[in-house]
Design a protein around this nucleic acid. Structure first.
Length: 613
DNA sequence: ATATAGTATC
């Protein structure tokens, strides 16, 4: 028996620090575990000759020696780890034996192997081993795992490295929350993590929109004095922007400057995109002022910067401003790419300028930029919005001629158009043809069809389709519920619709703005303004601020009942909260208030909206 | 390892 494993066992069983562990670590959380550590018994095995077989890589011969008793393979691993065996070879034996005998060696041995690989600087082998570990790992508690890591090796550096790589392995295998848990525990042990794990962890948390966790990790990076880099800050800024915490995103940029890091083009682009997508009144003005800041700080805008602004202006229903940015971009010597064209073509389509959109597509072809399936999707959508189904179908047929393939979004767009134009049969045919092409109808496909049936007032058929969909393993999502709620409201069954809110929570979903706004609209149509206002209160209690549509719905409801003073009060409240009135707001006010001789306080502002700023 | 475009519900 070798001294190392004896020490290991004593240490493990009694929870005392061995001479190999630092005093600091003796207070680590102790786990009484299923100690799978086996005491090596070499009597029955001829270790030297087996080691010889491994070094010669005579696997089949080795198999015949070991297969009588597979626990022998673990014993052999023990010996390899305790001897001077080459770690690379031990790793090969480790992988081979696990696969050959369909077993998992004790966790402790995996980590001892990692330590010996670390000593031999075989970092990519460590990553691969941890990656396969993270793939199957679900059941061990991370406190046990960290305990194992710290017990199975004596180098603090190697411990930190292994934990760092473990976080990365979890994140890469889409187990972000396990990665986060290890990150937290690593703090208890004092292990030093690096940007190589922290950045991907942050990025994974941003993708899951776990913004609270992003902020926690960011704080911990500062507290634990982990060296960040520009990317660390950029990811955090992105996370904050995605949930609309734009001021906090600005604070992080100030932090980074104080830390000695200069914001780069990605930092600025991220913040500009944040304002474009989540900003309120004057957001595009703000976006352009960030662009000016960026230039003043000698950071040169790139294609992405301009693409973000073009899309921002288009979504803000200001295509002419988007066109100006498009021209400016080319004057700066930057080439429009497929995303630039797609964004602007989409903007034109949404604005009803389908001919302009086609012209731009031709210009795109002329300048040698190849369209992709998105280009087709936005144009098909443009034609569909104009009820030009024939043209949309022609474009659909062109996709394959261009050597491209339609995707689920292409089909969904067409299916939705058929449903909206009363040709449900066509929609069903398209749905089955997508199956033939190996593109699986998704929840959106069903939502289009369900909405189509609801529009016809056939809620029963819609419910049947939901059952059908769930039979195919697709779960109803929030949009599905919103569609049903809308249908019930339109049938004058707002109370029934309201009961679906509880069902939404039961499904582990949470109602969105659309859900509440739809229900509010239902109550307004029934003339039950009190119930509608209660929905607004409930929504705000759930942490969802009223948006423009909320106000439009309520204002319309109050106007219909002749309560113009109340409608006016809501308009003011909307502006005070920094919300931008849109065309609908304007139309509601024009038609419902002005006609009754009532001039709302914000008429001047609405006038600007109506003519376009 | 970070930033940009397209479908369905109000």
């Amino acid at each position: 028996m070798n001294p190392r494993s004896k020490l290991f066992q004593g240490n493990f069983l009694h929870g005392k620090a061995s001479i190999f562990t630092r005093n600091k670590q003796s207070s680590r959380p102790f786990c009484s575990s299923d100690s799978t550590a086996t005491t090596p018994t070499s009597q029955s095995l001829n270790i030297p000759s087996l080691s010889e077989l491994i070094s010669k890589q005579h696997w089949s011969e080795l198999k015949t020696h070991l297969k009588l008793n597979p626990t022998n393979s673990t014993t052999l691993l023990h010996h390899l780890l305790s001897s001077e065996a080459d770690p690379g070879l031990t790793l090969r034996y480790f992988n081979w034996s696990q696969k050959e005998f369909r077993l998992s060696h004790p966790l402790e041995l995996s980590f001892r192997l990692l330590h010996s690989l670390a000593n031999a600087k075989k970092y990519s082998k460590m990553r691969a081993l941890l990656d396969s570990f993270a793939k199957v790992e679900n059941f061990h508690s991370n406190s046990l795992i960290l305990h194992m890591v710290s017990m199975s090796g004596n180098s603090f550096c190697a411990n930190s490295m292994i934990v760092d790589m473990l976080v990365l392995a979890y994140v890469r295998n889409r187990k972000t929350h396990l990665g986060l848990e290890v990150f937290k525990r690593a703090g208890d042990y004092g292990f030093r993590l690096s940007v190589f794990s922290c950045n991907p962890l942050l990025s994974g948390l941003v993708k899951e929109s776990a913004i609270g966790d992003v902020e926690y990790v960011y704080k911990e990076i500062r507290r634990r004095k982990i060296e960040p880099d520009v990317i660390t800050f950029n990811v955090v800024v992105n996370g904050l922007c995605k949930v609309g915490k734009l001021n906090k995103a600005g604070d992080v940029i100030e932090d980074m400057k104080a830390w000695g890091f200069l914001p780069n083009v990605v930092t600025y682009n991220t913040l500009i995109d944040g304002y474009c997508k989540m900003g309120r009144v004057g957001k595009m003005y703000k976006a352009e002022s960030i662009l000016k800041d960026m230039v003043a700080n000698q950071v040169c805008p790139n294609e992405v910067t301009y693409n973000i602004l073009i899309d921002g202006f288009c979504k803000d229903e200001n295509v002419s401003a988007a066109k100006k940015v498009f021209d400016k971009m080319q004057r700066q010597g930057l080439r429009a790419n497929v995303i630039t064209y797609n964004s602007l073509i989409n903007g034109l389509c949404c604005d009803g300028q389908i001919d302009e959109a086609i012209n731009l597509r031709n210009k795109m072809l002329g300048s040698g930029v190849k369209p992709n399936v998105v280009t087709f999707n936005v144009l098909i959508n443009g034609f569909c919005k104009k009820k030009m189904i024939k043209e949309a179908r022609e474009l659909f047929d062109d996709i394959r001629k261009q050597g491209l393939a339609p995707n689920a979004i292409t089909y969904n767009t067409l299916i939705d158009a058929c449903c909206k134009n009363g040709i449900m049969e066509e929609a069903i045919v398209l749905q089955s043809s997508m199956l033939e092409k190996g593109i699986f109808p998704d929840v959106s496909t069903y939502n289009c069809l369900i909405a189509g049936l609801c529009r016809k007032g056939d809620i029963e058929a819609a419910r049947k389709l939901i059952t059908d969909m769930e039979g195919k393993g697709l779960r109803a999502d929030l949009v599905t519920y919103n569609i049903i709620i809308d249908a019930l409201c339109k049938e004058g069954e707002s109370r029934k619709a309201a009961r679906l809110l509880n069902e939404i929570f039961k499904m582990g979903l949470s109602p969105s703005h659309v859900t509440y706004n739809t229900l509010m609209d239902g109550y307004c149509m029934e003339g039950n303004l009190k119930a509608a206002v209660n929905v607004k209160t409930r929504m705000e209690k759930e942490g969802r601020q009223a948006n423009v549509v909320t106000y439009n719905v309520l204002i319309k409801g109050f106007c219909k009942k002749g309560k113009l003073e109340d409608a006016n009060r809501l308009l003011n409240e909307m502006l005070e909260r920094g919300l931008n009135p849109n065309r609908t707001t304007y139309e509601v006010v024009r038609e419902e208030m002005m006609e009754k001789g009532f001039v709302p306080d914000i008429e001047g502002h609405l006038y600007n909206v109506s003519v376009g700023t």
